[in-house]
Design a protein around this nucleic acid. Structure first.
Lengths: 154, 154
DNA sequence: CATATCTCAGACTAACTGAAATAC
DNA sequence: CGTATTTCAGTTCGTCTGAGATAT
């Protein structure tokens, strides 16, 4: 019993692996050109995840000094990936946030929506509907785990 | 006409985006701990994509000198992500290849199969079948583009 | 002798720190 | 005056290059 079930799980697993690999390999040439250090990349991710934040917050998240955090943000700004803006309340505070260019860069890690849209266009109605149903179910499972993750080991 | 169709495309797009984002955020803490420079990471990707290769090949792919390439591979070896092995034919040649640890590191960028398996287990038969059908269709579209990509701009 | 790799010396840059300077 | 950020030495490490050594 449940033999078919297991086969299908394996098939999906293999499919996802192949898709990820193919889409990631197509991103490889692009990845090679990125001229950011790991520290700068980490800062970029932090800013993307936590939204606009001050230098102090960046320093805390990265567990580095404020001086260094300021320096890192500075490099991102010079590279055009981030921007500074004064906080309306406290003008001492500088909130750093990603520019569109910075967000685009992260999209490349995540998957290009435009290319994806092109792929979807080429699927027939039936397959698309199936994919939609399947992903909806999958997304809800993933998000449940995301919420419950704090209680687990990981 | 085709109004439903477009809605479904958007829904899938949004679903994929959410899933990617959630799964990538769960990888964030892990990413922070990686103590590799971009140059080393590039070398890791090159080795993963091109399989076992010599120092000269690595140098070519990365467009750097052989001295630097040897140095980079050396760091990966010391970090436990790569190994050296003599070529049986030419003992001058050293073929570098990733260790399991190195491949595991890349899997973290790609998506953890074990976690994914857990997610799939929690889906009901109907949803899983739909996901399977949809991904199959999607994968074939992606792979077609992958093969035809050389003739396009990118 | 040619090829493939390693070793060495040296230049350059980025990351990081701590302390002092500046703005609110 | 305290908080937030920048500026300023100064240390450390990684990247890269080119020349020369070594092995096949």
């Amino acid at each position: 019993m449940h033999k078919e079930r297991e086969e299908r799980e394996c098939e999906v697993l293999s499919l996802v692996h192949t898709i990820f690999k193919t889409m990631q390999e197509s991103k490889l040439p692009h990845l090679m050109q990125i001229d950011l250090s790991m520290a700068q990349l980490r800062t970029l991710f932090i800013l993307a995840e936590g939204g606009p934040m001050t230098i102090g917050q960046v320093a805390n998240k990265l567990s580095i000094g404020q001086s260094t955090a300021g320096h890192l943000v500075d490099r991102l700004v010079r590279a055009g990936y981030a921007q500074r803006a004064e906080d309306a309340a406290d003008r001492r505070r500088i909130v750093a946030h990603l520019t569109e260019t910075g967000q685009d860069l992260l999209e490349q890690f995540r998957g290009d929506p435009n290319r994806m849209r092109g792929y979807l266009r080429e699927m027939n109605d039936d397959d698309l509907e199936a994919l939609c149903q399947g992903l909806n179910a999958f997304a809800s499972v993933v998000s449940e785990h995301g919420n419950a993750k704090h209680m687990r080991v990981g």
